[in-house]
Amino acid sequence: MPAIVNRHPSFFVLLGVLLAQLLLLSVQITRNQNVRLIHVWAATAFGPFEQGFHDAVEGAVQSWKAVHVLWADQQENEMLGTQLVVARARIQELSEKAAEVQRLKALLNFKSQLSYRSIAAEVIASSPGIGSTVVSIDRGQDSGITVDLPVVTPEGVVGKTVAVYPHTAQVLLITDPSCGVGCLLGESRLQGILKGGGQGRCELQYVMDEEKVSAGEAVLTSGLDQIYPKGLLVGYIVRSEDGNIYKHIVVKPAVPLSRLENVLILFKSGPEQRQAMNVGRP
């Protein structure tokens, strides 16, 4: 026996250690695990380190989660930013379309109320320069357009056609100094000639000083110029001053001429225009 122990001392050390711990186990079992003191010592010695390490690990985990959440939020933010730009562009596009629909609807209503034949046109260009008084429309000879046709919108008179090309035409606005419109005042029925005054205003000429004219009074077409039908709204009187013989009456056009988009061209009731209307686009 001692020879075996001498040949394998470490094995017997192992057996001894295992046996000792087995005895320790059996003691604990018979004494109902009565080794509380060792556990208390171990817990007391390790407790602060456990707490500290736990806090550090928890802090690292929470930091990592926070970084992850921030990163995810940033990604989402970028994605939402892109979507917002697209949505804004889409809203803008839809708003434009809605506004166009409103304008066309108003134009259509106005057209149905008119006793004249008319054709709708879109303003496609204006002559260069600030305060431009000529605009181009997408209707021309192929739609039966001729010169000196009145151009209107539901708000009022815009001007008249001055040059016609195969597919387009030019409209001289009422604010152009060379444009004259036979007018009368809505309440007093005084007559005069409206001339363009530049800077988006017009002047009503040939109204005598002794006549009483009040600001805000509507200015309508008189029909005497043989171009514009009678009774169309042209604008409103802004200011009226006495001159030497005739009053200086400033009129603000009823139509916002700097923001024209869709207009109606009215046809005179002659057979030529009626025939042209039939071959023109709707």
């Binding site: 001392p9 470490s10 094995f11 050390v13 192992l14 250690v17 295992l18 711990q21 087995l22 320790l24 186990l25 604990q28 079992i29 695990q33 080794v35 060792i38 556990h39 010592w41 171990a42 817990a43 390790f46």
Partner: peptide, 29 residues
């Protein structure tokens, strides 16, 4: 060194047992 292995393993195992609040000697053995 087998004796070192036994002693080292036993000591570390007993420490684990002490921290585990179970029977002392399971991990030790």
């Amino acid at each position: 060194n087998q004796v070192f292995g036994i002693a080292f393993g036993s000591a570390l195992g007993l420490l684990q047992d002490a921290l585990a609040h179970g029977y002392l000697g399971q991990m030790g053995m």
